[in-house]
Write a protein that binds this DNA or RNA. Structure first.
Length: 664
DNA sequence: CTTTCAGACCTTTTT
DNA sequence: GGTCTGAAAG
């Protein structure tokens, strides 16, 4: 018999480096020191734009090059994207061994280890991760059951409750303490809240659910109570690196200590001036406590800025110099020449939007691509007017931060059906799915769910629900969908597709803007294509939802350059040639929410610092004047205090004037 | 008893 | 856009 020969090719490394990395030449002395100390605790204080990422990348490369098995390195970052990017760069320098380094967020790492060790704390390894809104839905359900939603009471709403619970966990402080500090107006409900928290905890345990905080808490508990597991994990991750350390909380810092317990090989990198997540329990004092927790810590400070021009740096230094509490660094740069930052007063919001559109196009004409220009805002909704203006002028953009497309009602609706396949006891998803059917309201939905849970029914039994009523046809269709979805051989995109077909009529009925929403659902199918199991897809989605907001997804998906709109929080660690900071108005930025607390006001300042330090060459700060604020009933007209403090010679002032229209 | 719909009110930042 | 309420309609 004649056999065809099929030749297996030799595996080629991603990039083969034929020459040695010249660490001395490619890094400055401080970076070099940080990248080449391979043992012991190290604290790197890295100013904005000082090559922090570069240093971490070189250190990973150095470790791997020196023979450390990549599996023994753990790189904890703020987002998975940051980790992937760093490991990709390290791989380019040596070879793709670096891809085998463990990298990701605390939550993602906790999740993967809990999948193995959850039985130690009475959980199954197949637990479901609740995202924030799932958690809120459960809290709401339990709150109603406890009779706490009667209208006579002023009981906090579900999102406030979730916030209180979460803060208490992340700061490792009792609820009473959190309420004294930040929610004093609800203090008389303390006992009820404690009861509700107890109930919430039980509910999660009974239904195999973990919210974001549980991932960290349970992981920490296992590390603390099981010395054998702690030692095993610590020995596995013999080299630990933590990025953005200023934004970790107490819980996370304890986890680090446990993981490092066997060897103390831990390097943390951060900048106290860029701590902007205290609302999530982060505490920049973690940085200063680090040497206390790890004796013999070496401290390295990176002070040379490679990002911005001197005029921009002069301005940002001025913003942070007025911070009440900080650990002094002095940033300097070799890029001495450059344009002064510009402060623009606009008459109203629409003038601000028009100015930005016009200026963006001008700068593009000068040769700066759109994706090198960013509009940064304090809160995602601050860009609404601008987005309309951009659309009117056909300027393509992506938006990061704020409302994520995964959180939109239609995407959640579709996903709820899929979640039932994994966990038929998921009451929250059942509720969502049932409420979509006509003639089924909260009462009927509740009855059906009770029937399912009590009688341990599977989705296939749905048609045998005893009550014959006006909604039987709807139930029959749902039943048909759910049974079809469990057929063998379906890929996840297939399942999404089938669900969408079932959901489409409902969608059209429910929303006038359904074409836009249908596009989102198509996008969802694209995302799923790379997953092999539904479980994996769903927990990934909860842990690392795509960061793009709704509008960005709906935009034409050309590969062409697009202008970037982002919240400052989502702009962490990034940089652009040109940056616009909008709404630099007292009451908006700093937000009026921060007026009552000095600590929060300090965080607003750091936010302004983070925003301004994103700019490489051009920085524009704009504010509209005479804005009526419905919340406070006041007129905001003063530019942000962080701008007013700055000596006027450090920026240019522009006023906008309307071009007169002579066409009449 | 339950669903549906209209209107009022609020909306920071995120794993 | 969401959440919550009250009142009409089924």
């Amino acid at each position: 018999m004649l056999m065809k020969q099929y030749l297996l090719k030799e595996t080629i490394p991603l990039v083969k480096k034929s020459f040695q990395i010249d660490y001395e030449k490619e890094l400055n002395p401080a970076q070099l020191e940080a990248a080449t100390i391979l043992d012991g605790p190290v604290l790197v204080i890295a100013g904005a734009g000082s090559g922090k990422t570069r240093t971490l990348v070189y250190r990973v490369a150095r470790l791997v090059e020196s023979g450390v098995p990549p599996e023994n390195i753990l790189l904890l970052t703020f987002t998975r994207k940051a980790a992937q990017e760093m490991l990709r760069r390290a791989s380019m320098m040596i070879d793709d061994r670096c891809e085998r380094v463990h990298g990701g967020t605390f939550h993602a790492v906790a999740n993967s280890l809990l999948r193995r060790y959850a039985p130690l704390i009475g959980y199954s390894s197949a637990f479901t991760i609740l995202d924030r809104s799932d958690a809120e839905d459960i809290i709401n359900l339990l709150r109603t059951q406890m009779g706490l939603s009667e209208k006579s009471r002023r009981f906090p709403r579900k999102n406030t409750i979730a916030e209180i619970f979460s803060k208490s966990v992340n700061k490792m402080e009792p609820i009473s303490h959190i309420m004294e500090q930040e929610y004093f107006h609800f203090y008389e409900e303390l006992q009820e809240l404690l009861g509700l928290q107890e109930l919430y905890k039980k509910y999660k345990e009974q239904n195999q659910l973990m919210d974001y905080d549980d991932l960290l808490v349970n992981f920490r508990t296992i590390l603390e109570n099981h010395p054998d597991v702690r030692a095993e994990i610590s020995r596995k991750f013999r080299f630990l690196m933590v990025d953005e350390y200023q934004d970790t909380n107490r819980l996370q810092s304890e986890i680090i200590q446990f993981i490092a317990s066997e060897h103390n090989n831990v390097m943390v990198v951060g900048d106290d001036s860029q701590s902007i997540y205290s609302f999530r329990g982060a505490n920049f004092r973690n940085i200063m406590d680090f040497p206390k927790r790890f004796s013999g810590t070496r401290i390295i400070t990176l002070e040379e800025n490679y990002r911005s021009t001197q005029p921009i740096l002069d301005l940002t230094n001025e913003i942070i110099i007025n911070a009440k509490e900080k650990y002094t660094k002095h940033l300097f740069t070799k890029k001495t020449k450059g344009a002064l930052p510009i402060l623009i007063a606009a008459e109203n919001e629409n003038y601000q939007s028009r100015f930005i559109c016009q200026k963006v196009l001008e700068i593009r004409e000068e040769g700066v691509p759109l994706d090198e220009i960013a509009i940064l805002c304090r809160a995602a909704f601050h860009t609404f007017d601008l987005e309309i203006e951009l659309a009117r002028r056909n300027i393509p953009y992506v938006k990061f931060g704020g409302f994520k497309f995964i959180e939109t009602a239609h995407v959640k609706d579709v996903l709820a059906h899929l979640r039932l396949l994994i966990n038929p006891r998921d009451a929250i998803s059942w509720h969502r799915v049932l409420m979509l059917i006509g003639k089924i309201g909260p009462r009927t939905s509740h009855n059906i769910i009770e029937w399912i849970i009590k009688n341990r029914k599977e989705p296939e039994d749905l048609t045998s629900y005893p009550e014959k009523a006006k909604f039987t046809e709807g139930i029959r269709q749902l039943h048909e969908l759910l049974t079809t979805l469990t057929r063998k051989g379906l890929t996840i995109p297939d399942q999404i597709n089938l669900t969408c077909r079932y959901y489409e009529p409902i969608l059209k009925n429910k929303y006038d803007d359904y074409p836009k929403r249908l596009k989102d659902l198509e996008h969802l199918q694209n995302i799923t294509a790379r997953y092999s199991t539904l479980e994996h897809f769903l927990s990934d989605l909860a842990l690392e939802p795509p960061n793009e907001s709704v509008a960005g997804v709906a935009a034409p998906d050309s590969d062409d350059e697009r202008l970037v709109l982002s919240t400052i929080h989502s702009a962490k660690g990034l940089e652009w040639n040109t940056v616009f900071i909008i709404w630099a108005l007292e009451g908006k930025f700093p937000s009026s929410y921060a007026f009552n607390s000095e600590e929060e006001m300090e965080e607003e300042r750091r936010l302004m610092y983070v925003a301004a330090t994103r700019a490489k060459e051009n920085l524009f700060i704009t504010y509209p004047v005479n804005i009526y604020d419905r919340v406070s009933g006041k007129v905001f007209s003063k530019p942000s205090r962080f701008v007013r403090e700055i000596p006027s010679e450090l920026f240019e002032n522009w006023a906008l004037t309307e071009e007169l229209d002579y066409s009449y």
